[in-house]
């Protein structure tokens, strides 16, 4: 990730069977890579969470609780600037 020199993502937070990657961090990286400004990127990543995305992780259907864990453990959240 290219942002904010954040804390290291703790893989132990990933629920059983989940890939050791984070959808929200991946989305963040892709949007930053596309040149989207940081405030808009954060809004869209948070928007994805609020809209209940992702539905699936690989072939596994995510529960709301698993999505919550994934989002709140993401580097996007941990490195989110105060003005966001």
């Amino acid at each position: 990730m290219r942002h904010l020199g954040l804390w290291f993502y703790n893989l132990t937070n990933a629920p059983n069977g989940m890939a050791a990657t984070n959808y929200y961090d991946d989305l963040f990286s892709r949007l930053i890579g596309d040149g989207v400004p940081l405030p808009a990127v954060i809004e869209r990543v948070a928007g994805a969470y609020l809209d209940g995305k992702p539905l699936l992780l690989g072939k596994k259907k995510l529960t709301k609780k698993e999505r919550d864990i994934l989002f709140w453990a993401s580097d996007v959240v941990k490195g989110c600037p105060p003005d966001a």
Binding site: I42, E43, A46, Y49, L50, K64, K65, D68, F71, W72, V77, C80, A84
Partner: peptide
């Protein structure tokens, strides 16, 4: 992000 934070505060698990 404020709405997301509200979502966090509104859930318990």
């Amino acid at each position: 992000m404020s709405l997301a934070l509200a979502r966090y505060l509104g859930q318990e698990p």
